[in-house]
Design a protein around this nucleic acid. Sequence first.
DNA 1: ACCGGTGAGTAGGAAATCCAAACTCACCGT
DNA 2: ACGGTGAGTTTGGATTTCCTACTCACCGGT
Lengths: 169, 169
Amino acid sequence: MGWKFQPSPTLSLMAASKDPRPCSIADTLAVVGEKYSLLVLREVCLGNGRFDQLVRNIGAPRDILATRLRRLVDAGILVKQPYSERPQRFEYRPTRAGLELEPVLMTLMAWGDRHLRTDGDRPMVVEHSCGRALAPVVTCRACGDEVRHEDLRAHPQAPGWTVTGPAVA
Amino acid sequence: MGWKFQPSPTLSLMAASKDPRPCSIADTLAVVGEKYSLLVLREVCLGNGRFDQLVRNIGAPRDILATRLRRLVDAGILVKQPYSERPQRFEYRPTRAGLELEPVLMTLMAWGDRHLRTDGDRPMVVEHSCGRALAPVVTCRACGDEVRHEDLRAHPQAPGWTVTGPAVA
DNA sequence: ACCGGTGAGTAGGAAATCCAAACTCACCGT
DNA sequence: ACGGTGAGTTTGGATTTCCTACTCACCGGT
């Protein structure tokens, strides 16, 4: 992508460059929305954090991958840890903030499983500690109910928003 | 972005072009991972589905937006509905599949609110029908528990995967 | 000491995308 | 007739991406 960020961007600077609205979705995508970034996170969460592993597993060009890794480290989503001195070798690992993006990955995976695989074959099953295959559901922390579009109403807290009201095809 | 898709891609064709692994995360990102796509979905879920509204609210170039809209319609995430004949005017609305991506948006928003806004001011609050501000949590459908990294184990169902095992910084 | 191999990148130019502004086309209101 | 709106398309230049090759540091075997 190129979610527009400056040469030497403090995190706060680059986030709000183009989107006319203040929005945490846009800001988050400015950090992890570029091509490959979320796939990097997928690999790193699986424990495959070495540069060449990432190149092989993601299929990204090495230079782009290097750029993405720098960015994710800058954003506090990954850390670069040495796993061997002499020869110096590094491994990228998720920080706590990085791990908190894992639910996004799970939700994306679930959507893809449901809507993109008519054959019904999941290429990957994630097992939850309860013993079952994970089927992630987004719920409301307050009431515990599954979040459905009809139950949501948006309340802009800052100028720049117009909300016409929900409508579904 | 450019998540690599061919000139005249049937949905199934373009998904699996470069990623060496079969993966529903990658496949889903191939559909909605390009720049602006998820912001389009944000707007459309808010009911702001007209072309010029989208241009203004997202800040995307008109040609790119046109491309994204075509793609999202092709993918069955949006539909283009006339809201006036003579003059012909259209509005994009989410399909059911599109709405099922809303949890992804909520999760991204929550992450941004928590990690990108040190001031603590949310630019937008979504109210749930239970009366509280929505704090989305991803849970396991089977047991209802919140999904945490430590509780997950990946089981590849297809060749191409290596899972080193979880590790956190 | 030499040879080949691995990990982690960097360099350089071609190819694809993105962007902004201008342009189109159909219609409407006055 | 004139200006304005909605929904795009065109154009040409600025950025990004992509691909291949190269580097640099080190290791292990002979």
